[in-house]
């Protein structure tokens, strides 16, 4: 059946802003140009914010984090991680079909976003002049975290099992304190949280990914450090993701810092420490997963 196309006739009269003059308007001492709150408004009592004065230790005894998965039905998988002032939520959509050309392996995309009001670490340094990172709408920092997580995931997901499909990972940074935690610390926890979200989505992984973040202070490596832990001149930071398969394979590394002694020795020391933290985190994540599976039975 065919319909004749009837164009809408749009009234093109220009909109005139008519300000009515009310003779009964209240007295002039009322400020009518601003929206004021009620006169009886009370100021909310803001509790004193506890500064995250936690410092890194070499044995990782101070590391605390909260995990939760499966909170959402909209996403295929969702995981939530909270540690200190950092709150990360990762949602996984997929595997879902793509449109276009045939692809033999699934395409994986990771997108990390900070909530708009959050101060991003080293914002000026990374975002300063160039916004040309090829990813629409992502800042330089968000892009870096996305790339790091994606690198780690690519090594562990058997993408060839999912032809013609796409797996989309959305990382939302809900809270982050750039004064106490560095970008690398965020990357480490994000990687761990993402692997949990993958498990929740039921997407196959050859192994869990867990990450460690360390900072060198002299010759000791501090696990899960806070900013300023090792500010004795140049300090070197390292974050690495591991799978325990193949005897603790490293699937992603990110080093940052201004130290002169970034030699092989320092690298080995840091990777070793990263592994310790990663194992510490892994045993907790595994414990959580086993508890989760048993509660479902």
């Amino acid at each position: 059946m065919l319909f004749a196309f009837t164009p809408y006739i749009i009234n093109s009269t220009p909109y005139i802003n008519l300000i009515p003059h009310f003779p009964h308007f209240p007295a002039m001492n009322v400020d009518r140009r601003r929206m004021l709150g009620p006169a009886s408004a009370a100021t909310p009592i803001v509790p004193a914010v506890s500064s995250a004065a936690q410092t890194g230790t070499s044995d990782g005894s101070h590391i605390k984090f909260f995990l939760k998965s499966g909170l959402s039905k909209n996403a295929s998988g969702l995981a939530f991680l909270e540690t200190g002032d950092t709150i990360v939520e990762v949602s996984v959509y997929g595997p879902r079909p793509i449109k276009g050309l045939y692809i033999e392996r699934a395409s994986l995309s990771v997108e990390c976003r900070f909530l708009p009001y959050i101060t991003q670490p080293n914002e000026v340094l990374y975002n300063g002049s160039s916004r040309s990172n090829g990813r629409a709408g992502l800042t330089g920092i968000e892009h870096r975290v996305s790339a790091f997580v994606e690198t780690a995931l690519l090594a562990t997901i058997p993408l060839e099992k999912y032809p013609k499909l796409t797996i989309d990972v959305f990382v939302n940074v809900l809270s982050f304190n750039a004064n106490t935690r560095s970008l690398l610390n965020l990357a480490a926890w994000t990687a761990t949280c993402t692997s949990l979200a993958m498990v929740d989505a039921g997407i196959e992984m050859r192994d869990l990914i867990t990450a460690g973040h360390v900072q060198l202070s002299g010759t000791t490596a501090l696990l899960d450090p806070t900013v300023g832990d090792a500010d004795d001149g140049g300090s070197l930071e390292c974050v690495a993701c591991f799978t325990t398969m193949h005897n603790n394979d490293v699937v992603a590394v990110w080093m940052d810092g201004s130290s002169d002694d970034a030699g092989l020795e320092a690298l080995t020391l840091q990777l070793e420490a990263c592994k310790n933290m990663s194992n510490l985190v892994r045993s907790n994540v595994n414990g959580y997963l086993l508890g989760l599976a048993d509660s479902k039975e």
Partner: peptide, 20 residues
């Protein structure tokens, strides 16, 4: 409509993307 190749790297590919 469906996702183009490259998945969700474009805007509006999920509710989360729309919201944020």
């Amino acid at each position: 409509m469906s996702l183009p190749m490259g998945g969700g790297s474009q805007i509006l590919s999920s509710y989360a993307a729309v919201a944020s």
